[in-house]
Design a protein around this nucleic acid. Structure first.
Lengths: 250, 250
DNA sequence: TGATTATAATGTACAACGTACAGAGAAAAG
DNA sequence: CTTTTCTCTGTACGTTGTACATTATAATCA
């Protein structure tokens, strides 16, 4: 009678993040690593967007069969978490030790924003409370240090950081969205107005929507287009820091 | 020789949003309306999440064949836009005329947050600059009126509103994400710690991550769990209004 | 050394998705 | 009555994530 089929203790997500899975000693040599899979996926996402990251595509870029990936990663969900943690771990942060708090937090925000802009898929994929992988932990530690010693309680520090990073993530996602939309439409602003202007003029009458028409027009003219992500980021960052100032300089 | 195949001028998204498509006079009677399709889709999304909204599922709930939907809606992308605009159009806003600006903006944020929480799928699906459908236009008009007469320029009004709503959307998406995660894991905090505690203790050493460990612990204990969406919303709203105060009370 | 056993790698297969397309039938227009 | 146009539908295609069985490989144990 053959012994009961051995239960392969499949690694948890956390073990995977920390690369803490004991690599099996028995079978054939591994032809890949988790890092290789993650890197390949990031490369594809950077070049062609997250929707181009399919298991087949990643495997192909590694010269392996699709199902081989599942030796290294439990599924696509986990792969994306790993991709994000890798990004966090590779960020380089501006050194702002000793500078005033406003500059420190501003640098934090800009570091984050730069990372998101360099990997357009990341803002949409990331969550507010990512799992505590090594990359996220390193990032979190660095960010908290910028907030330490400002007179905030520990809980306030966490609140403030989550608030600041939430703003940056949204701003980056909006910027990426605006890019994608512009690319997808392949329609100049002029063409768009020729196609949609008449209807809008008929339907957005100044009787029902006086303020919207006035403000929308002003905003559109000021930015030269419907939405200016860079301006939104600068405006928002200033407001966010002003908002935090109230509890920091209290 | 048969005449050239007639070109059905398929309606643009804007025409669809404003229900401005001329309904064809020729063929059989329509068995549905755009609204019926949109409502059915919203009902499914509310009950089972956006990922349950498939063309087959929506059609089935209307007692029609799948492809019938494409008579009313160009595709799934457009359907989701229509769903969101419908939500915006049905919001009811707290009347805050004459009240101080901070209460007015706070009510705006809470109205928005309430809508997102009632339709958990909406925060993730919505964009910063939604197409100018009737719902979005009504909402935008109402919101701008709350910002009018505060001494802001038109461009600043638009900036401030986008900033405020961006915060609310993110907070709502985070809250929905936290709900979903809790539901999906089906793991009590205690079980989670039993499974992952040992690894975390080994790997999150206080040498490398002193601040992160300290603050993370404090935050976790304060909220009784890793993340408290309601608290994050209140904290963030206060900060956001404080930040806007700087340009409003200038 | 030879038998055993855990593991890596892979091919096949399946269910689910959005939607292109062609055809059948209905109603208005000529 | 004929023609035209439109609604509705069934079938089918390409794509997705991944379950599963199989084969090859290497370390372990007798």
């Amino acid at each position: 009678m053959p012994s009961a089929t051995a239960e392969t203790p499949k690694p948890t997500l956390l073990e995977l993040l920390w690369r803490a899975a004991p690599d099996g000693a028995r079978g054939p040599r591994k032809g890949l690593t988790v890092d290789a899979v993650v890197d390949a996926a990031i490369e594809i996402a950077d070049a062609e967007g997250l929707e181009a990251v399919t298991m087949r595509r990643v495997a192909q870029s590694l010269g392996k069969a699709t199902m081989t990936l599942y030796t290294y990663v439990p599924g696509k969900t986990e792969l994306i978490v790993l991709m994000l943690d890798a990004l966090y771990g590779r960020m380089d942060f501006e050194d702002t030790a000793g500078r005033p708090w406003r500059e420190r937090l501003s640098a934090l925000a800009r570091d984050d924003y730069r990372m998101y802009r360099a990997h357009a898929w990341a803002a949409a994929a990331s969550q507010t409370r990512p799992p505590l992988g090594p990359g996220q932990s390193t990032k979190y530690e660095h960010e908290l240090r910028a907030l330490d010693g400002l007179g905030l309680s520990d809980v306030e520090m966490d609140d403030a950081l989550a608030y600041l990073l939430g703003f940056v993530r949204t701003a980056a996602a909006d910027a990426a969205g605006a890019d994608a939309e512009r690319e997808a439409s392949a329609m100049s602003d002029q063409e768009w107005w020729e196609a949609n202007g008449p209807l809008l003029a008929r339907v957005l009458d100044t009787e029902r929507f006086p303020t919207a028409v006035r403000v929308g027009q002003a905003a559109g003219e000021a930015h030269g287009s419907a939405f200016d992500p860079a301006h939104a980021f600068e405006f928002g960052l200033a407001r966010t820091l002003d908002g935090l100032a109230v509890i920091i300089e209290r």
